[in-house]
Design a protein around this nucleic acid. Sequence first.
DNA 1: GCTACACTGTCGCCAATTTGACAATTCGGT
DNA 2: ACCGAATTGTCAAATTGGCGACAGTGTAGC
Lengths: 227, 227
Amino acid sequence: MNCEQYKPLLMKNPWFAMLPASTIKQLLDLCKLKHIARGEQLLAKDAEADGMYCVLEGKIKISNVNREGKEMVLTWLTAGTWFGEISMFDGLPRTHDSFAESDSQLLMIPSQSFHRLLLAHPELYPHFMKQLCERIRTVFAILDETSGLSLRSQLMKRLVMLSNGWNAASQQDEIQVSQESLARLLNTSRQTINKLLQALQREKLIEVKYGKIKLLEPEALRSQSDL
Amino acid sequence: MNCEQYKPLLMKNPWFAMLPASTIKQLLDLCKLKHIARGEQLLAKDAEADGMYCVLEGKIKISNVNREGKEMVLTWLTAGTWFGEISMFDGLPRTHDSFAESDSQLLMIPSQSFHRLLLAHPELYPHFMKQLCERIRTVFAILDETSGLSLRSQLMKRLVMLSNGWNAASQQDEIQVSQESLARLLNTSRQTINKLLQALQREKLIEVKYGKIKLLEPEALRSQSDL
DNA sequence: GCTACACTGTCGCCAATTTGACAATTCGGT
DNA sequence: ACCGAATTGTCAAATTGGCGACAGTGTAGC
């Protein structure tokens, strides 16, 4: 598969760029392209794993539905982010649902191919173990956040996170997200989100627009979110 | 180090028992014993990692302190449970504080020794990657729980978890934990915990005692906690 | 057996959040 | 320019949970 055009994007991802050049070449040969239309489901929770993915274009929502049918969004992934590696490594079912929030282009590495590569190059193991550790640390961070911070702080932190992308790939100060979606991300109500956003706007930290939010003072948001 | 007396306990842990016999022997040779008195701190968040631990006797509290100084308990670990592997694998600082809640006996595998073992036996890598994946799945489970369930459901789920031990090692239907501690585990107040426990007792699901809780209907708790 | 201390059971009040409702605004397509 | 769908802004009522207070109860140590 010829994925050369996406190589610059992929190389922005630190852990990918850190791989040996020969490995990168092999990986790119193994992977497949997959297009998915807005609103469609990519992976389903509890389904068997087929491989690991990377977002090339578009936005992917990672979420879960609890027993009351309420959707709980874990995060949205944007270009340059890899995901789906957990089920690939342990062979167990998917942990989350994933949907395309906009028309999206994805890279996919089939489990089999990947495991063959690892078998041939065991020196790569430490690299991927660190990758897994990083994921655990991210989830711990979210856990600390959700259970220890005020809603206001959570919101500020998430706004900064969203503007950075999940992995600090693309830096934008305008986030494309509805208040309704933010509510599902923080497991709260749209009304509460609205009130908090209004407050932040009054403090000149953000600008609330239709379907998007502009960060006026990302640094202030970042530092204050630890209060 | 002669750890033979603890071998039966260690073998109760599925992932440990699944290791090749020769590896188990090597691991037991590498490890050191460590005693720690009730109330003492074992590891500190952000400290450099020295290795991986396993609880042999006693109870270890894994927790964090948020910026307001409030303690947030992640879990308590009991005999047979390994921990501290994340910092060992990625070389980054500890993610949590850990304290002995009672006089405890621990097994410790120094990072260096462990990495030498892995280097010599790369075929062990997949095993430890699965180990890491399991940890991620556990943290995801806690995350789903804390952000999506009612306090009542959270409490029921945690009671079941605590009775199983972190990794389903020892099955006991009487949990030794104060309502105050439960409150810090669920990031709520003692009064709320008390009210919920009273309700569960009225429903004959548990029996509330002094400093401990007896699970009368573990199965009912498990199934209802998904509501 | 007594005592100090830790833990439990329960109030009532207060702040934060949910829920439902409804009007106003924005945007894309025609 | 107009229309319908999506999104935002706001309110009030009901609920939940936090917090301080305080009495009651169990337990370990003397």
